[in-house]
Write a protein that binds this DNA or RNA. Structure first.
Lengths: 200, 200
DNA sequence: CAGGTACGATACGGTATCGTACGATTCAGT
DNA sequence: ACTGAATCGTACGATACCGTATCGTACCTG
C-alpha cells in the first residue's frame, strides 16, 4: 500500500529505491524546467523510464509525486557556527537564503512552494515545518545577539524574518534585481540599522 | 477580429460592452476563487451565461481572457500628494501595498502574475509596465527626499523597492504575519534607519 | 421597419491527463 | 534453481479542456 514510511531497519529491495530515485529525479527535473504543471505522470513516465503502474504503486496520486519532489529538493537552513559573532551569523543565514535563490533547483522549489500554497490550498502538507525550523534558527541567533547587546530586545521573530528574508525573496520572484550575496549583506545592514543597538 | 482595441470615439453596441463586462467579471471571480487554472472557458461560460462562441468572438484564446482578467484587476499605485512630506509619502506608498495584499482580488492577481511569470514565460505581456510605473513613483518620492536632505543620495531604486515592498510581499505570501498597516509603517522605519539621513 | 450584427445553444473533433487493469517479464533473496 | 515481489508495457475508460462550426434568434441602428 503506497503512502507508508519505508522501514529503515530492513534492507530495502534495490529495485524499490531505484524506482523511487528515478521517479523523483525526473519529477524534480520537470519541476525545474516547467513548474508544477509540468510534473505530469505521463511526463514522469517518459523521463524516468518507469512504468506508470509502478509509479502508482509507490504514490497514490499525482499530487503525492509532486509533493515528494518538492520535499526532495526543499531548502534546508543550517544552524550557523556558534563561535561566529551574531552579525556574522546573521550574514551567513541571509547569504544562504541568497544562495538558495541562485540554485535553480532550490529556487524553483521555493517559488513553487510559496505560490502553490496560495493557488492550491488542496496541496496543504506543503513544508509547514520547513519554515518553523528556519524561524527557530533565526530566533536562536537573534536571542544570542540580545544577550551580547547587539540586538535590541523585544524584537518580533516573524517581523525580523520578513525584513531579513523578504527583500531577497522579492528580488528573486520579481527578478527586479539579483538576489545575491551583495543584496544579502546589504539587507543585513538595513536590518541592523533598525534592530541593532549600534554596539555591534 | 478579436484583439483590437475598442475605439472610444464611436458609441459601442451595448451588447458588446455587456458581454465584455460579464465575461471579465466571471473570469475575475473564478481567478480569485481558484487561481489561474480555474479560469477555463467552460467555467467562464457557466458563470457569465455568455455563449462560448461569443467569448471567442471577443478573445482569440483562453489565455487572452485570463490576461484581460488580470489586467482588469491589476494593482495600481497612485502618485502620492506632493504636498506630503517624503516620509509620509513613503508611508502612503507602502501602506497601499499592504492594502493590495489585503484585498483578495488584488492579492490574487499579484500572486497569479508572479506565479505565471515563473511557470509560463509564454505569457509575456504580463504587466511589465505595472512594475515600472511603481518604480517611477517610488523614484520620484525618493528623489524629492534626497533634495530635502531626508534620504541619503546615491540610493538604488531597485534595492530600495526590495526593502520597502519585499517584507510585505513576503508576509503576504508566507502568511507568517499579517501584511497590514502596522507592518507597512514599521517597514518604512527600518528603511529610513538605513536609507535616511536622520534629519527626517 | 428592415437589415445587419451580436448573441445563444449545442454539437463536435481533438488533445491531454488521470488513474486502473492485466498479463508478461525481470529480478532479488533464499 | 525456485518463488514471490517488483516492474514493464500497454491498453482502456473517464474527464476536462480547447477551439470550431452551424444555425436559429434577439437586438441595435439607421
Amino acid at each position: 500500500m503506497p503512502g507508508e514510511l519505508p522501514s529503515v531497519d530492513i534492507a530495502e529491495d534495490p529495485r524499490i529505491s531505484r524506482t523511487r530515485r528515478a521517479v523523483l529525479d525526473a519529477a524534480v527535473e520537470l519541476l525545474v524546467e516547467g513548474g508544477a504543471d509540468a510534473v505530469t505522470i505521463d511526463a514522469v513516465v517518459a523521463r524516468s523510464k518507469v512504468a506508470k503502474s509502478t509509479i502508482y504503486r509507490h504514490w497514490d496520486t499525482r499530487d503525492d509525486v509532486l509533493l515528494a519532489a518538492l520535499h526532495a529538493c526543499g531548502p534546508d537552513l543550517e544552524d550557523p557556527d556558534p563561535a561566529l559573532g551574531t552579525v556574522e551569523a546573521l550574514r551567513r543565514i541571509v547569504r544562504s537564503v541568497a544562495e538558495m535563490t541562485s540554485d535553480p533547483v532550490t529556487a524553483r522549489a521555493i517559488s513553487t512552494i510559496l505560490l502553490l500554497r496560495l493557488e492550491r490550498p488542496s496541496l496543504q502538507g506543503l513544508e509547514p515545518d520547513l519554515e518553523k525550523d528556519q524561524i527557530k534558527v533565526l530566533r536562536r541567533v537573534l536571542d544570542r545577539g540580545v544577550e551580547e547587546g547587539v540586538i535590541r530586545p523585544g524584537y518580533d521573530v516573524q517581523q525580523a524574518s520578513a525584513h531579513l528574508v523578504g527583500p531577497l525573496i522579492f528580488a528573486h520572484i520579481t527578478g527586479s534585481l539579483p538576489s545575491d550575496e551583495a543584496l544579502a549583506d546589504q539587507t543585513v545592514e538595513v536590518f541592523l540599522a533598525y534592530y541593532g543597538t549600534g554596539r555591534g
